[in-house]
Design a protein around this nucleic acid. Structure first.
Lengths: 204, 204
DNA sequence: GTAGGGTTTAACCAAGTGGTTAATGCAAAT
DNA sequence: ATTTGCATTAACCACTTGGTTAAACCCTAC
């Protein structure tokens, strides 16, 4: 029955996603994925022939989702300020729920950089699609700042504190999880304020 | 002879550092470390009893170095502007030479967060030592910004683009290594400008 | 019911892993 | 020259790893 099949495949995909993100490709164990999916290890190989195939399947799906989400936020035909607010808020929420995601993506892409290149051929994601509009918009609103710098600054301030969570939590908040979380929530506003304040200095 | 011993131990440490940083604890192979050090695998266990011991030794040294470097920059009794310039420039230089370092630290600390806590007991590094001064300094110079946000924003903008190198290089610069490197060099100035511009908005 | 085909499993395998051991090399001290 | 003690190595080991195989287990169709 294709119903049952889908169920099993989904259980595997979900378990694999968890384990790969937590442990990375090298640290992940097929046995652990099978256990978390509640199935026999052989079934993994029945549905996905090898660890590498399974990994690529999961990784591609993740990259796609991230790319599309990014594209959506960037394409809204709204002001820079609203784009900024939307991006910061949405991404902090998503990443707080998936705190291992940034490291995972960094790692696996560092391990095998061609993966992006190979992948973006098939996907309908085109960086220039959201990059050019931002460039035009900055120019239109008379902000004389390099759009690449601008964008990377914003993304940095959102993603870094999540990738570096253990360090920040320990060193800045003495291990207090709640304090860290509260801080990250406040950052939704503080980042926007910081960036808008910076932008003022670039007004022509 | 203690001379020769030091040499071997150093060769091991250097090779181990390379491999651990590139592949992480899980991905590193004792055989590869031995090969890169040009010695027999048994010698690794002769000098450092286990993979874990070797890893902890290397990891501690790295954390110490990073912490001390950070402390030094932050303790200089100079203006915020000069501190900022020093930090950005020094860290970009160091990290461009060690591009795997951020990911490595993120990963291993995520894997075992207690490591920081356990480690900072022995080390003479005290976060408040460089954190309080910055707080006072921001207040003294009449900048009404949360020092935690300020510091994390700056660090983010420096470290993130190195951790995310493969993504940025591919998506922003279409795989052009030189363009990426040039961009990172320019960031030494652009980050400072951006932050100083932002700070203006916080002046009381 | 039973034949057939996809699904699931237990048992197994070869390769690779960190780690041990016993022997060898080698330089200084006697 | 012989002994002594550390440095180094080859051979080996137990265990884990991803992956295979053949049998068991369902369902559905006849």
């Amino acid at each position: 029955m294709t119903e049952k099949e889908k169920l099993t495949e989904d259980k595997i995909a979900e378990a694999a996603r968890e384990v790969f993100i937590e442990k990375g490709m090298a640290g992940a164990r097929m046995q652990e994925i099978a256990d978390r999916a509640g199935i026999n290890k052989s079934l993994l190989h029945y549905y996905f022939r090898s660890k590498e195939k399974l990994f690529n399947f999961i990784f591609s799906k993740i990259i796609d989702r991230v790319g599309i989400m990014f594209q959506n936020i960037m394409q809204e035909g709204v002001s820079i300020e609203d784009k900024l607010k939307g991006f910061v808020s949405t991404y902090i929420d998503v990443l707080m729920k998936n705190p291992f995601l940034p490291n995972f993506i960094f790692n696996e892409l560092t391990r095998n950089p061609e993966a992006i290149f190979d992948h973006y051929k098939n996907a309908n994601i085109e960086p220039s699609k959201f990059f050019k509009p931002l460039e035009n918009q900055l120019a239109a609103e008379k902000y004389n700042i390099n759009p690449q710098d601008f964008m990377i600054n914003v993304i940095s301030m959102v993603i870094f504190p999540i990738a570096a969570k253990p360090i920040i939590k320990q060193i800045v908040f003495e291990g207090d999880e709640k304090a860290y979380k509260a801080f990250m929530q406040l950052r939704k506003e503080s980042i926007v304020k910081f960036v808008l304040s910076a932008l003022e200095g670039y007004k022509e």
